[in-house]
Design a protein around this nucleic acid. Structure first.
Lengths: 217, 217
DNA sequence: GCAATCAATTTTGAATTCAGAATTCAAGGT
DNA sequence: ACCTTGAATTCTGAATTCAAAATTGATTGC
């Protein structure tokens, strides 16, 4: 007997819808998020919208603005630095563990992710580039065999997607990123734990540097 | 003019109430959580309860049990190991950064936290011991100057509190823990980054080992 | 006597309603 | 002209209501 997936609730659907809108920068900065408005645009009542906003608030994507409801959390450079710092710690752990126990799967399935990245680079599609990056890193998280790593990173990546979206709009395609991914995957396949961990750390350090330069320009 | 803090909403209060009940093990394992029941016991409608449960679900403390509503997530040993692994990565980062930039505050305010721990040991109060441990570690997180560290750890500590509660029930008081806290604080005050980081890692490794031994017995 | 089916009850997700708080805007005073 | 005041409007949190899905329990057939 096939167990059939329970359909997602309206709350979950609304959550995803608002999340994409935020990620894709569809909300004017500092614009107040009105439940009624969102509910109307999605064709549901305010109830699931209120609940979805509550979840987004606990993710930190949406923020209480005293007395004026909820706004999309602004992306500040300091915050992004903090984000990359925490991400570095978790990604180093994930990549080390992936090298320790995921070499087999990495060699079987890893190439797909690199190819997806190359295709995205060739197509020059921002959405595709972001998706390929997310998928590559969650593939590594999966190899690490510790579900809490992906779980903990989930909310961070909601911000990272926003950051990447803004940065990719103005700048050359991030070829270096994918060269680094290739190196990281190879270290994982080789089972070289300390090299994999080091490369993961470098990857993030360099991503942050590149990002800061682009923001300044 | 003093700006007065907006009172917490019912949802937030209900969230806290359910969270304490879970943390203190007040729910029978695998018992289904019924909105009506909880609402009645707190004297509110189902509405804020439903929203609070949604938040607890996104924290991972409460879990969908296919077809039978929500249950408190069981504490499995594998999960606790995963938890300690991620916590080690974050705590090492936090403690290193605390040593790098928080030495001053650490020397001024750190002793309080150690004393609170000693008092708790003397009183033999489990609740007090847990609170002192949480407070000490969040003090370190604060010193790190990266709000995302505390934010990211928040949901982990909800589980850690549960684990600690169960473990402290059967076993000797964790004197070693507080000796280690003393060492960690000293390394932070000295600004010895790599020593602080190393001690933080050891602290968690040893806590996990002690925990596994107690669970087996 | 045991299993299967169907009706009754319970429970939940979602809509609607209600009340209070915040915001806006216009009128009046300095 | 600008600031203050207060009423009208808007918006949100929370209660209530509604409908569908799930669970329970009883009855019927083997």
């Amino acid at each position: 007997m096939n167990k059939l997936k329970p359909q997602p609730t309206l709350v979950d659907q609304v959550y995803e819808a608002i999340l994409s809108d935020i990620t894709e920068g569809k909300f004017d900065n500092l614009r107040r998020l009105k439940q009624e408005e969102i509910a109307a645009s999605l064709g549901v009542s305010r109830q699931p919208v209120q609940q979805a906003l509550l979840l987004l608030r606990s993710d930190g994507l949406v923020r209480d603005a005293t007395g004026r409801g909820l706004i999309v959390a602004p992306l500040e450079l300091d915050f992004v630095r903090d984000l990359y710092e925490v991400r570095a710690a978790i990604d180093k752990l994930a990549t080390a563990k992936a090298a320790e126990r995921g070499a087999q799967t990495a060699s079987e399935e890893g190439a797909e992710y690199l190819e997806a990245g190359q295709r995205a680079l060739k197509n020059g599609s921002i959405a595709e580039l972001i998706a390929a990056d997310v998928n590559f890193h969650f593939f590594i998280y999966g190899l690490a065999g510790n579900p809490l790593i992906a779980e903990t990173s989930r909310s961070h990546w909601n911000f990272l997607r926003r950051v990447m979206g803004q940065v990719l709009l103005k700048g050359e395609p991030p070829v270096a990123i994918w060269d680094q991914h290739t190196e990281i995957l190879q270290a994982v396949i080789d089972g070289d734990i300390s090299k994999a961990e080091g490369l993961a750390g470098d990857h993030i350090t360099q991503a942050l540097i590149a990002l800061e330069e682009r923001i300044k320009s």
